[in-house]
Design a binder for these strands. Structure first.
Length: 262
DNA sequence: AAGACCTTCAACCGCACGCCA
DNA sequence: TTGGCGTGCGGTTGAAGGTCT
């Protein structure tokens, strides 16, 4: 993980964590006495039965109460991502694909917010789907999945520094027919100058030039930006200036799950 | 047929954050 | 105001199954 902006912050957090442990903060679970890995049918059944009887919540005490040798977090994740009855199983539709792309272009990797807009889908599911399908789909369209800008445009006015991509670049450059070996096998690769990649991107904020269709709610027109809860955005195309409706809380556009779960 | 390689996705890990005493 | 606790979130891992050579 690379959330720290500096090593001093990291050491501070390590110190804080150490102090927490010294001062008696209990770990999230007793790792010695918990199962890990794939869930069995019996464990699933126990979890479902317990939640049906007692409802969600208090995940920390749930495993013991339900007779499960699992950590509370693990139970929560299993329920939310797999066992909940309102989950939509099966492939993503083309409409869902496009919605995810639009939402990601405004929200970035806020998977839970994106999931809140897709009934029956979980943040984990969307995150996985993004990494396995949509990223590739955007690349095949010549769009950078991180910035949602055309790849060639991004290479012109974005200073990109990345070690991971440098390896890919090396493969591309060593491939004489212009095709990448694995994921984008049949996708022609544009020749780019081998730059120094350090995964650090410096670029002006991107503003989508073509606005998505406005959302209509109870006689009022909400633009896509406002429906996402972005306040006073210059990209706002709402007919009313009081269109601020964070995640559709006022308009009722928000998927009920996000109210129930969060 | 078999091993290497690739893809998918469930599950884990660690940090952030809000609540409450 | 402070610190513990519970929960949520996003990044990462690894097992399993599929595909390629």
């Amino acid at each position: 993980m690379s959330r720290y902006s500096s090593s001093s912050t990291a050491s501070f957090l390590r110190l804080k964590k150490g102090l927490c442990l010294i001062m008696g903060r209990s770990p999230c679970c007793e790792k010695d006495h918990t199962n890990k890995g794939a869930w069995t049918k019996e464990e699933d059944d126990r979890l479902i039965a317990y939640i049906r009887a007692h409802g969600e919540g208090c995940w920390r005490s749930l495993p013991k109460a339900a007779g499960l040798l699992r950590c509370g977090k693990s139970c929560r994740l299993r329920w939310i991502n797999y066992l909940r009855p309102d989950l939509k199983r099966g492939n993503f539709t083309e409409e869902e694909d496009e919605l995810i792309i639009k939402l990601h272009s405004f929200l970035g990797n806020k998977w839970s917010l994106i999931a809140g807009r897709l009934p029956g889908r979980t943040d984990n599911e969307i995150k996985n789907y993004w990494n396995t399908h949509i990223r590739r789909k955007l690349l095949s369209r010549g769009i950078d999945p991180a910035t949602h800008r055309p790849l060639n445009e991004a290479s012109q006015d974005v200073t990109t520094l990345s070690f991971s991509e440098a390896k890919e670049e090396k493969e591309k450059l060593s491939n004489p027919n212009g095709f990448i070996k694995k994921e984008e096998k049949k996708i022609p690769v544009q020749e780019r100058c081998p730059d120094l990649n350090l995964d650090l991107k410096i670029s002006p904020p991107y503003h989508q030039t073509t606005q998505p269709e406005p959302l209509k709610t109870e006689g009022r027109t909400l633009c896509f930006i406002c429906s996402l809860g972005v306040k006073n955005s210059k990209d706002c195309t709402c007919s009313s200036s009081s269109g601020y409706d964070f995640l559709g809380l006022n308009s009722g556009l928000l998927d009920y799950r996000s109210l129930e779960m969060k």
